[in-house]
Nucleic acid binder design. Structure first.
Lengths: 230, 230
DNA sequence: CAAAAGCCTTGATACTTTCTTGATACTTAT
DNA sequence: ATAAGTATCAAGAAAGTATCAAGGCTTTTG
């Protein structure tokens, strides 16, 4: 269904199963990381911050339930358990340890992917938008809404894109070509006049006094930078 | 495990199964409401605001998938599907319609309860008001009735879907392709002309003055967004 | 079964907003 | 004072938007 599915960590001691999952999921646009043991799974979760974990129950050493428990001490990432064990007690233990779903092998890859989509839905729907704030400036990049001292501001696509890139690298200096490249592609990356016009329009809309910028600072000879404030 | 488990709506046309579930879940401290048909399920969800819904797939009339779809138009309440059908396609359809889990009969009551606990862990939000209001606009997403300043308005299916998606993401900017995808599927997501015609028709029906929209704002170069008021 | 009604889709056209370009003034450092 | 870089204004070009109307499809009705 949806391409660009996100990042999935596959934990299984059997190489064949990892390969099967990697192939199937990659084809659907998921980005894959693999781990073969429980310990590896824990470090891989920290390092690669997956959007979902597929976890085999029967790992050597630290088993799936224990891995789940350890993960749930600090993260809410969706976990889907795979297992050959049909036993109800096992399912209950795994789910109560914090797993989101439990699937017995053999399973259909279509069903697994449907359950993955279901598990990942929870995360997005329940978390409110991350909002960038600096002084009186607020940028909600999910809703695409910009406010200055509580008042909503209307920006053109280019102006908004410019601001979005500045927010993305807030506090850091962005060169003219970096900004142009991110906003209008490589073709325009030398047209700094164009950038200045758009920047002027953007400032007129968000700066209380464009002559004395409060948010977007000019770095002469280099580019611009968005000020970070508490 | 947990007593005082919350409020569960059981939807099944077989009285025996409803009774079995009611008995088992009541013993665990859950408060139970029952429904025998899809239509009853929809009204019961509004009236009793359950924390979780157990939904049989094979209902007479409106089936479980359709009930799920209708519920997901406005609420995120966890839905666990029960079914005698093992077929993978059925599972995928139900999960993609918005169900949280799918359990085939016969099932262990212990597993069901573990899956219920897992499903309820996700939810932070309560059931929202199924009637959206903003200024003089009222959208009842359960009965699909739209009113402007108290007057009922007749919308075509496409117009209603468009409005429903706008309501679902009220206050947020929706791009043309997002709107088209939710309303007509991925095939049409580039046909922005089509979107404009429908949007124009919708506005003619709900906006007092389509030249100066009060509800549906155009975000030039991006898409549309439904205004939130008080 | 045919006619009518309603809806979706497409094309044409007028309209609005945004982008780009050129001209001009300003700032800062040498 | 000059040169290089920066900011702003204004106008034409380009892109995006709103609306009307006609044709085709499906569903409802007589």
């Amino acid at each position: 269904m949806d391409k660009q599915g996100g990042h999935v960590l596959i934990v299984d001691d059997e190489r064949a199963i990892r390969r099967f999952l990697r192939t199937s999921l990659s084809a659907q646009g998921y980005h894959i990381t693999e781990a073969a043991t429980g310990e590896e799974a824990l470090t891989a979760t920290v390092q690669s911050t997956p959007d979902l974990i597929i976890l085999d129950l029967g790992l050597p050493g630290m088993d799936g339930v224990e891995v789940t428990r350890r993960l749930r001490e600090w993260t809410q990432v969706p976990i889907i358990i795979l297992s050959v064990i049909q036993d109800e007690g096992n399912k209950i233990r795994a789910l109560d340890a914090g797993a989101d779903d439990y699937l017995t092998k053999p399973f259909g890859i279509g069903e697994l992917m449907a359950r993955m989509r279901a598990a990942m839905r929870h995360v997005v729907t329940n978390i409110s938008d991350p909002i960038f704030k600096s002084g009186g400036l607020e940028v909600d990049v999910v809703s695409r809404i910009v406010k200055v001292t509580g008042e909503e501001i209307q920006l053109t696509p280019t102006e908004y894109d410019l601001l979005r890139v500045l927010v993305k690298y807030a506090g850091k200096v962005l060169t003219h070509s970096q900004l142009l490249r991110e906003v209008r592609g490589t073709d325009y990356q030398d047209d700094s006049h164009l950038l200045r016009v758009h920047m002027s329009n953007l400032r007129r809309k968000i700066e209380p006094d464009p002559n004395q910028p409060q948010y977007i600072m000019t770095e002469p000879g280099v580019g611009y930078r968005l000020l970070l404030e508490e």
